[in-house]
Write a protein that binds this DNA or RNA. Structure first.
Lengths: 225, 225
DNA sequence: CAATTATGATAGTAACACTATCTTGCAGTA
DNA sequence: TACTGCAAGATAGTGTTACTATCATAATTG
């Protein structure tokens, strides 16, 4: 298994954390800490203590904790797009490609040995619970201009293109995809914390399969003419 | 036009803000301020200055700013349920009721003279930009136990019941409704800030109509058997 | 009139989100 | 080997946030 590196937008960091020992530790341990504490209670000070470094050193990699979160979420979406790429190799049928994309988005996330330094399970929990906070801010327009959300947007565009291949007359391909991608996370969160907002039963095995089925039905029914 | 008061869960406040002058000012001006500054930059200190009161006084009404936000969002959902109630009076057909519910959820929000002290337009912008933050926290389970999300859940249940009337075999009525309600807000946010994630064009007149159409198609296609 | 209670005034605290500066140590180069 | 550059550590400091506590005062109620 080859060890790869995902290319992340340079505006997301001051110094590339993938290139140094300390940088990798920052990313690795921030994933663990945000997962444990939640984003609001996570601080650079606590992270510094944990990795036996200093606040100042962390600030040399990331401008602030918001950028670090956006970095992690961007990494996630790049990873998902890479996985969709990988899994749709040599497949022609747009229906099949759409199905695979939805599967990759909704499926249970296990450790990907291609990226040994990232704990994808923890990161997935962060994506579910925190990713909306990356853009629900007053600086969203500036952040967007800097290209911080490129990963999500590019993925959305790609899956929307499958939909247009299937039904060129469908009017809302991007809206449908962005809705489905967010719904996938939301339903997992609801199933766990606000179960009356969801019909997925919170049993580990069934959960992800049901979620995938819900999304597939939603999308394929929507684009049927 | 009768002036009504919505009944809000008592766990959301320490002293009922609807019953005093100061309380109403807190609610009114916090809506304006959160709309202007965004929730993270909004503080009780700034609010106190604006309404010529003190931090301490505001803390006598709301435990903290998170609870205040949850209060505002709860008010909003109660208002929406009241409006759906109002607009579905004497209507039998579940299809029609579902349509009306989606319309009320998606339509442009204007000042409702029934609640003269609330700026519904500003509140709607807050709901779009901030409402997810009410439950995307580590204390979601405790907050939920206290019934803080009752409004949203009750509305979801009601609309889901329309769906089950239409098609008793549809397996994901709650998931579909919660997805649609969130999608409605999300698409408006995307249209304005991340337009490549949406197909709604950001022209004031068309926007809400398109959004409503998107949601209706999504929901009605999903439940068709 | 006395008692209660809402509000205001003021002060204080721990944590947070940085910023600045200076030093150390190490890797590469002349 | 000495020189240079730079990453990281050490330390300190600042303004703000999110509270909590206490006391005074004014208005309302019994």
């Amino acid at each position: 298994m080859a060890t790869l590196q995902l290319l992340i937008n340079e505006n997301l960091f001051l110094r590339d954390p993938q290139e140094t020992e300390l940088g990798r530790k920052i990313v690795q341990d921030s994933i663990a800490m945000i997962d444990e504490l939640g984003f609001e209670k996570f601080t650079f000070k606590k992270l510094a203590q944990r990795i036996d470094s200093t606040e100042a050193s962390i600030y040399r990699y990331f401008e602030n904790k918001h950028k670090l979160l956006v970095y992690l979420i961007a990494w996630y979406w790049n990873w998902i797009e890479y996985r969709i790429d990988y899994c749709t190799q040599n497949i022609e049928s747009p229906e099949r490609k759409l199905e695979i994309a939805l599967k990759v988005i909704a499926e249970k996330k296990d450790k990907d040995p291609t990226f040994p330094q990232i704990d994808e399970e923890a990161l997935y929990r962060i994506v579910i619970a925190e990713s909306d906070k990356t853009y629900l801010t007053k600086q969203v327009d500036e952040d967007n201009k800097e290209g911080l959300f490129r990963g999500f947007k590019s993925l959305c565009k790609r899956v929307a293109s499958y939909i247009l291949e299937i039904n060129p007359d469908y009017v809302y391909p991007h809206s449908l995809v962005s809705t489905a991608m967010q719904a996938g996370h939301q339903q997992l969160f609801y199933a766990q914390h606000l179960p009356s907002l969801s019909d997925l039963n919170n049993s580990e095995d069934e959960l992800y399969i049901q979620n995938e089925k819900f999304l597939k039905e939603l999308v394929f029914h929507a684009i049927k003419n």
